[in-house]
Amino acid sequence: MGLSAFQMVYWKACHLPVEMKHKALWALKFLNFDPHETQTKRRNQLLELEEMQLHAYDSSRSYKEKVKLYHDRKLVKIVFNLRQQVLLFNSRLKLFPRKLKSKWLGPFGIKRVFPNGAVELENPNDDGQQQSWVVNGERLKHYLGGEVERFSKVMMLVDP
């Protein structure tokens, strides 16, 4: 029949590891490959790949630095002084959006300015006491006058 016992039972050819090694050596001899030459060629390819990775990493880092410089150049540093009137951005408004509602609350007085950009605000209560809390300076803008919605509860202003 021309089939081995293994082929008759499992309906496929059986390849032993010795045969595979022999076929690989036969292919090397047949194609006239020098194992040392292919080894050095593969090592050179790996070195070139590593060099390309390093070049891609350097170009990515330089691109990120350029984008950061461009972004930082566009930023405007706002300086706040003590007793100055400011408006606070209401970040909770997006939970209950109202089309014509102001996104800014205040005016509030500045009690203290920290070097890291945080600002302590103060708000007089209805009972005459001063409430104060610390917010990020980027959530503030200068108050120039006019009507702004005021809240008596400070807890609505502070994010959880």
Rank of each mutant, 00 (worst) to 15 (best):
T40W: 01
K41N: 09
K41C: 13
R42V: 02
R42S: 10
R42N: 12
R42Y: 13
R43Y: 09
R43L: 15
N44I: 02
N44S: 03
N44V: 02
N44H: 10
Q45K: 14
Q45L: 12
Q45T: 07
L46D: 04
L46P: 00
L46M: 08
L46K: 00
L46F: 04
L47H: 05
L47G: 02
L47V: 05
E48T: 05
L49I: 03
L49D: 11
L49T: 03
E50A: 14
E50V: 09
E51A: 15
E51S: 13
E51Y: 04
M52I: 03
M52P: 11
Q53M: 07
Q53K: 14
L54V: 02
L54F: 03
H55L: 13
H55V: 10
A56N: 14
Y57T: 07
Y57R: 15
Y57N: 08
Y57E: 15
D58A: 15
D58M: 15
D58V: 08
S59G: 04
S60Q: 11
S60P: 03
R61K: 07
R61P: 11
S62R: 14
Y63L: 15
E65W: 02
E65H: 05
E65Y: 08
K66W: 04
K66Q: 00
K66I: 00
V67C: 06
V67T: 11
K68C: 07
K68N: 00
L69I: 10
L69E: 07
Y70A: 15
Y70N: 12
H71Y: 07
D72A: 10
K74R: 07
K74N: 03
K74D: 04
K74S: 05
K74L: 12
L75M: 04
V76R: 12
V76I: 15
V76K: 11
K77R: 13
K77E: 06
I78Y: 02
V79N: 12
F80G: 06
F80K: 04
F80P: 05
N81Q: 15
L82R: 12
R83W: 09
R83N: 15
Q84F: 02
Q85K: 15
Q85F: 06
Q85C: 09
V86H: 08
V86K: 12
L87Q: 01
L87D: 00
L87W: 05
L87F: 06
L88K: 09
F89H: 06
N90C: 03
S91C: 12
S91P: 10
R92M: 10
R92K: 12
R92F: 07
R92G: 02
R92Q: 04
L93F: 01
L93N: 07
L93Y: 08
L93K: 10
K94P: 01
F96A: 10
F96V: 11
F96H: 14
P97K: 05
R98D: 05
R98E: 10
R98S: 03
R98M: 09
K99F: 15
K99C: 14
L100R: 14
L100N: 14
K101L: 06
S102G: 06
S102H: 00
S102L: 03
K103D: 12
W104H: 04
W104C: 11
W104Q: 03
L105Q: 03
L105P: 03
L105K: 01
G106K: 04
G106V: 00
G106T: 02
P107N: 00
G109Q: 13
G109M: 08
G109R: 01
I110N: 00
I110K: 04
R112C: 01
R112D: 06
V113G: 07
F114K: 02
P115W: 05
P115G: 05
N116M: 02
